[in-house]
């Protein structure tokens, strides 16, 4: 979707349980609300049971905050932080 005035790219840093289906759940939560992921990077951490995801998403601050709160509600999500890019 074309970038609107109040939209920015936000980087979401997520620590999630390393289990099947977790990536699909997180991506679905974002795409299901009509928002486009610009960049997605998934990798292991030192703890093999935890994965790290870096997600760049374009949206207004309100929408991105809502996405973060809903990500935190996900049963497999350990932590989410954000920064503006």
């Amino acid at each position: 979707m074309p970038m609107q005035k109040s939209e920015r790219i936000y980087r979401l840093n997520c620590f999630v349980e390393n289990k099947p289906g977790v990536l699909a759940r997180i991506v679905g939560l974002i795409s299901g609300r009509g928002y486009n992921i610009q960049t997605l990077n998934v990798g292991p951490t030192e703890d093999g049971t935890v994965s790290r995801m870096k997600i760049d998403v374009l949206g207004t601050e309100k929408v991105v905050n809502q996405i973060i709160l809903q990500l935190r509600n996900c049963v497999n999500v350990i932590e989410v932080t954000r920064r503006r890019r």
Partner: peptide, 8 residues
């Protein structure tokens, strides 16, 4: 009880 309900 759901943080994502507030300000939604």
């Amino acid at each position: 009880c759901d943080p994502s309900s507030i300000e939604k």
